[in-house]
């Protein structure tokens, strides 16, 4: 979102030189630089080395780690699953968020519903993974149990089998994040003055016309922020996938996404391989993906909104 320049509206007697403000900002900036920015730069450097961690000295190998990744099926699997969450998951999340936001606008219990739908976002992802596992467990899971109880045995599936488990992951993520994006979209829709809809109603506008002529243009800013947030969320989501895919231990490769693979090859797994160079190369690709997509989304969505 654009940060309005504060310079031109500043009352002159409140204007400060940078030095005074610097003292207010320095502590936050120092920790931010040390914990986030310095390691980000270091990751790029480590990605050009082969390094087994403390006790081993990093050896410069140029683009070798990247070359290795581009030839690795495991990497492309993780990469494609990350994109699947981003695009397929994203379409479903945004479709539901939109429909729900429009429906909730006219429902009396909207605050209660919003609070319930948002709730998974403050629950520990491990707890969500446990719940999702219980729901989808093949033999005595709640979903299969429910399907049998209503006479739909034919619809029961082995939801956690290798061919279905990643779809189950995406369904879980949709369940968690839809509530979050409903909340954001609702905040945008709530800001639209009521008289716009009243005027549209007087003119006999259909719901579709109201959506495309009123709601969409007037929430474009919020939508663009939501799209950026989704890009970041989809690429970095880790805890739910890790805990669900491995039931609390190392997840099977059929659920790996980029962040899971970074953890698995560099630090995690029962017997860590400490391939720090390779892990860092995946991390750099993730960073690049976030950067490119955020810029792209912002460019695509720029300046189609309406001021009101």
């Amino acid at each position: 979102m654009g940060v309005p320049s504060t310079m031109d509206v500043s009352p002159p007697h409140l204007r400060h030189d940078g030095r005074r403000a610097g003292a207010f900002i320095a502590p936050a900036l120092a920790i931010y630089l040390a914990i986030i920015m310095a390691p980000t730069v270091a990751t790029v450097w480590i990605s050009f080395t082969e390094w087994r961690g403390i006790g081993d000295s990093p050896e410069f190998v140029g683009l070798e780690n990247y070359r290795h990744l581009l030839k690795s099926d495991t990497f492309w699997g993780s990469f494609n699953r990350t994109l699947a969450i981003l695009i397929a998951g994203g379409l479903v999340v945004f479709f539901f968020s939109f429909v729900f936001t429009m429906l909730l606008r006219e429902m009396r219990a909207k605050r209660f519903i919003r609070a319930v739908l948002f709730f998974p976002n403050i629950v520990p992802p491990v707890a969500l993974a446990i719940a999702w596992g219980v729901l989808l467990a093949p033999r005595n899971g709640l979903l299969n149990g429910f399907l049998e109880a209503i006479g739909l045995e034919s619809a029961t599936r082995t939801w956690l089998a290798p061919d279905l488990i990643f779809r189950s992951v995406i369904a879980g993520l949709v369940w968690i994040y839809t509530g979050f994006f409903i909340t954001i979209l609702m905040a945008g829709v709530d800001r639209i003055p009521k008289h716009f809809y009243e005027a549209a109603d007087l003119e006999g506008a259909t719901p579709r016309q109201k959506l495309f002529r009123v709601t969409l243009p007037l929430t474009w800013d919020v939508l663009s922020v939501a799209a950026v947030l989704w890009v970041i969320t989809a690429i970095k989501t880790f805890e739910f996938i890790y805990a669900f895919g491995g039931s609390g231990t190392d997840p099977s490769i059929s659920t790996w996404t980029l962040p899971v693979q970074v953890y698995a090859v560099a630090l995690g797994n029962r017997s860590p391989i400490f391939a720090l160079g390779q892990g860092s190369a995946i991390a750099v690709i993730m960073l690049a993906l976030v950067g490119v997509l955020v810029v792209l989304v912002r460019r695509i969505m720029r300046r189609r909104g309406v001021e009101f």
Binding site: P39, F238, L267
Partner: peptide, 16 residues
């Protein structure tokens, strides 16, 4: 910094 995934920094963070 909001856009930097924790995984992208965890390796040097751990070492550092």
């Amino acid at each position: 910094g909001i856009g930097v995934p924790v995984h992208a920094i965890i390796i040097p963070l751990f070492v550092g």
